[in-house]
């Protein structure tokens, strides 16, 4: 390992003094902060970033992207994982990658482009010996530090679509509302099917993933949403945006709606399914999905609303994802034709 690191340092030096200097000066991630029992008050205590404001990761912190991302009012998301020295991920079919204890998942939410980009919050998931812990950190005005926001918070901002919203940073419990199954905190995003085969392959080559599983990278690419086949895209979108609650053991299990990618029962995914506890969220409609009739489908009605008590998802959304709505509308309209 030290031999490999020596090679890396040599390679970096060859790239030029400035880069090498930054990398060598980069702080190491604090394994004690990640795996210890405390809730660090400042994001910098973890040492995830060589340069927080520019979101340049520290050594051992690896960026990744999702084929279909979870939509959060159009926020730009910068995603990273951290693996402790000498550890690796284990693939579990096309599902969630298995993270070793001491690993972390880091996601920063930003709005604005180029020089105008502002970091809003960074959410961390820490894999500790007794399970995952989710913590939200809020960036300061100067963009020099993010501070633990256990109780969450709100701020006014304008989305990329030009809508002025009150953006909600979730509190620690709300993190768990989405990140939970059977009462335990779990990661949502890094499922093998939602990561590119290139990324999985590179991780395997680097010894940081045990194998590239069948089904890795099998979700469609969200960039094809306007013209690609509606069904796989819509099912992938619902899986990524809704299924963490709408599945057995999830936060909305009592609704009976199961929007996971792998669910094949039409009734479970909402087709001709009557509402249970939707209240006014039903919008006067009788079925979650009425094939061929998107405007009579509760699922689309709730996606297309930003009003609390009606809007779905309940958290992390203050405006409507028009691309997602257009896609799901197209899928329901095509149904039964």
């Amino acid at each position: 390992m030290s031999f490999a690191r020596g090679l890396l340092v040599a390679a970096l030096l060859a790239l030029g003094g400035a880069v090498a200097h930054a990398q060598l000066a980069a702080p190491r991630v604090s394994d004690a902060a990640v795996a210890g029992p405390a809730f660090p008050g400042k994001l910098s205590e973890f040492g995830f970033f060589a340069d927080g404001a520019r979101q340049r990761p520290a050594r051992g912190v690896i960026p990744y992207a999702l084929k279909v991302p979870l939509w959060s009012d159009g926020a730009e998301k910068l995603r990273f994982i951290y693996l402790p020295e000498g550890s690796q991920l284990a693939a579990d079919g096309e599902g969630l990658l298995q993270f070793p204890v001491g690993a972390a998942i880091i996601k920063t939410f930003a709005f604005g482009e180029g020089a105008a980009r502002r970091l809003i919050e960074t959410r961390v998931l820490l894999h500790r010996a007794d399970g995952w812990v989710a913590l939200p950190y809020r960036w300061n005005e100067e963009q020099t530090e993010a501070t633990l926001a256990l109780a969450g918070g709100r701020l006014d901002l304008v989305t990329p679509a030009g809508e002025a919203i009150s953006y909600a940073i979730p509190n620690k419990n709300q993190c768990k509302t989405c990140h939970s199954r059977d009462g335990k905190v779990i990661p949502i995003g890094p499922k093998a099917r939602n990561l590119s085969r290139e990324w999985l392959g590179a991780m395997w080559k680097a010894g940081q993933l045990d194998h590239v599983p069948a089904g890795g990278g099998s979700l469609p690419d969200w960039r094809t949403r306007a013209t690609g086949p509606a069904e796989p895209l819509a099912r992938a979108y619902l899986d990524v945006n809704c299924a963490h609650c709408h599945q057995p053991g999830g936060g909305a299990s009592n609704s009976g709606l199961d929007l996971r990618w792998e669910q094949s029962d039409p009734h479970a995914i909402g087709i001709m399914k009557r509402p249970v506890a939707a209240g006014r969220g039903a919008g006067g409609h009788n079925f979650s999905i009425l094939p061929g009739q998107p405007d009579a489908s509760i699922l689309l009605y709730r996606m297309d609303s930003a009003e609390p008590g009606i809007a779905m998802p309940e958290l992390g959304k203050a405006s409507v994802d028009t691309d997602g709505v257009a896609l799901v509308r197209r899928w329901i309209a095509e149904m039964g034709k």
């Binding site: 419990n173 609390p308 958290l315």
Partner: peptide, 12 residues
Amino acid sequence: GQQGAGEGLLVT
């Protein structure tokens, strides 16, 4: 003046 979440208080 509630702006978010599906209920006033959630107990889990």
